[in-house]
């Protein structure tokens, strides 16, 4: 599945490289480069979340996905207008804050899970299973 996703993303990226539109704020890097970067980040994060058997790694994957989103926001903002760049920068900042808060809580949960079950594998805590 990860293989398929990667192939699809590469195709999307190849298509994006042909589309060259100038940045509103005068950035020399075209937009689709950011987008490809964001996709790569997202797919890496998703792959980690889906494949790893360790809660810590899953949290790291989630961070990657969040950052992919944040990069997307800022890239779109910079190619739209200055006002939009400000707005998207603020949103990006919020995402960073959110990610920090989320990581804090998630790590606390992971610590507690480890304390209770002596494991960090997500399938091991199964008390609520019938």
């Amino acid at each position: 599945m990860i293989g398929c996703s990667t192939v699809a993303l590469l195709e999307v990226a190849a298509a994006a490289l042909h589309n060259t539109a100038p940045s509103e704020v005068g950035s020399p890097i075209p937009l689709h480069w950011y987008l490809v970067m964001s996709i790569v980040l997202f797919v890496f994060g998703l792959a980690i979340v889906l494949s790893r058997r360790n809660l810590i790694y899953i949290l790291i994957g989630i961070e990657l996905i969040l950052n992919a989103g944040s990069l997307n926001f800022v890239a779109f903002g910079s190619y739209r207008s200055r006002e939009a760049l400000v707005d998207t920068t603020i949103v990006g900042t919020f995402i960073i804050v959110l990610a920090a808060a989320e990581a804090t809580i998630a790590l606390a949960i992971v610590l507690n899970v480890f304390g209770l079950f002596n494991t960090v594998r997500p399938e091991d805590p199964n008390l609520l299973r019938e």
Binding site: M1, S5, L50, E123
Partner: peptide, 20 residues
């Protein structure tokens, strides 16, 4: 199954399929 990653896989696969 009770495994988060299975659900998530289906979710991602579904979203990818939908997008495709």
């Amino acid at each position: 199954t009770g495994f988060l990653q299975h659900y998530l896989t289906v979710l991602a696969g579904g979203a990818a399929a939908g997008t495709a």
